[in-house]
């Protein structure tokens, strides 16, 4: 058990290294100032306090969406709806923040709860279609992302839009609803505590509760789970609804922590980034913060690199794909695993 964990860890490290080496090669090919670019990419985020703050700001939404994805993926539900739930959750939080007058502390909590409910409700659709009729949750949740985006934009445009703002944005959220930013010179906000809490709750849920156990068993072998009396249809439903709720909470937290108004004009992409983080963390909630920091670090590094040099930040998407492919590749380095198993068996014998 210990050895295989170590092996998985090494495999991840090697996959990441290969991806980063690829990044270097790409940079050397396309850039006139490769050393400068690599320097920015690797060390930009720790070059100043503010930039490292940016990393942690980005970690907050990533933790939520990747927790959402890991819950669904652990049940082998390939639901891509975290993106739409995140978005519509933020819209719901904006609506509560704008239209309601509530005391501080209570106000953001109500708004975040609303985000969670709306996010969960959104994911109910693919969950229901899958549980009832075995319709592919992959396709329906992807379609749902587009629907949630348009629905969200509709609500912002027709009910919450500030006509005097000069751009297509909502009214400002009542200050009582905003999550306080507590680190000077950064936008790190109280949502980080909610994120940490969510990690612990999701871990507890998955590994210490009956529902979590049923969820994981369904993911490992749904037929076996079925035969041993687990209601796998229920698992299909609640795994996706819970995933949607977590993503919705994430969207609400992001909006109340980082913005005064709702101002997204396109899907922010955290739902899909959450998939990357979840795969890096092997769907393990306790590893998710580490993986989220890693991805956010890489993103901010790429961003700083693109600002100072001629390498566009989208380079990251190429190396992300390589990372996911290699980490998800069971046969990658399996030769060594095999050797390790043989050696272990010999020692035991």
């Amino acid at each position: 058990m210990q050895k295989s964990t170590l092996f998985e860890f090494l495999r991840t490290v090697i996959a990441v290294l290969i991806a980063i080496i690829m990044a270097f090669i790409i940079i050397f090919f396309i850039s006139k100032q490769p050393i400068e670019a690599i320097n920015r990419f690797l060390f930009g985020p720790i070059s100043s306090f503010r930039h490292f703050g940016n990393v942690l700001e980005m970690v907050i939404p990533l933790i939520f969406t990747s927790l959402a994805v890991s819950v669904m993926f652990q049940a082998k539900q390939f639901n891509m709806g975290a993106e739409g739930s995140f978005f519509i959750g933020a819209v719901a939080a904006a609506a509560i923040g704008i239209k309601f007058k509530l005391p501080p502390v209570l106000h953001p909590l109500v708004a975040i709860a609303a985000g969670g409910i709306v996010g969960g409700a959104a994911n109910f659709i693919p969950a229901f279609l899958k549980a009832r009729w075995k319709a592919s949750e992959l396709v329906s949740s992807l379609m749902l992302n587009y629907i949630m985006f348009n629905l969200g934009i509709y609500f912002i445009n027709y009910y919450l839009r500030d006509p005097y703002a000069g751009a297509m944005v909502s009214y400002t959220v009542n200050p009582t609803a905003n999550l306080p930013q507590f680190v000077p010179r950064t936008r790190i906000h109280a949502g980080i505590f909610i994120a940490v809490l969510a990690v612990i709750v999701v871990y507890y849920f998955l590994y210490r509760t009956r529902w979590g156990f049923a969820l994981r068993m369904t993911g490992i072998n749904s037929k076996f789970a079925d035969y041993s009396g687990i209601n796998t249809n229920m698992v299909i439903l609640y795994s996706q609804i819970i995933g949607g709720m977590i993503a919705g909470i994430g969207g609400a937290t992001e909006l109340l922590g980082m913005y005064q108004r709702f101002q997204w004009q396109s899907l922010p992409g955290y739902g899909f980034d959450g998939i990357i983080v979840a795969i890096l963390a092997r769907n393990n909630p306790l590893l998710i913060p580490v993986a989220a920091v890693f991805l956010a670090y890489m993103r901010i590094g790429a961003d700083l690199m693109s600002r100072m040099t001629d390498v566009p930040s989208e380079m990251v998407s190429v190396i992300q794909a390589v990372m996911i492919m290699l980490i998800a590749a069971e046969a990658f380095l399996s030769y060594w695993r095999h050797k390790m198993v043989v050696r272990e068996a010999k020692i035991d014998g």
Partner: peptide, 19 residues
């Protein structure tokens, strides 16, 4: 390499979108 084909597909989509 026995990558789960769904995860592989997701990775390729993300790669194409940014790439």
């Amino acid at each position: 390499l026995k990558t789960d084909i769904i995860l592989g597909g997701i990775a390729l989509n993300l790669m194409a979108s940014g790439g």
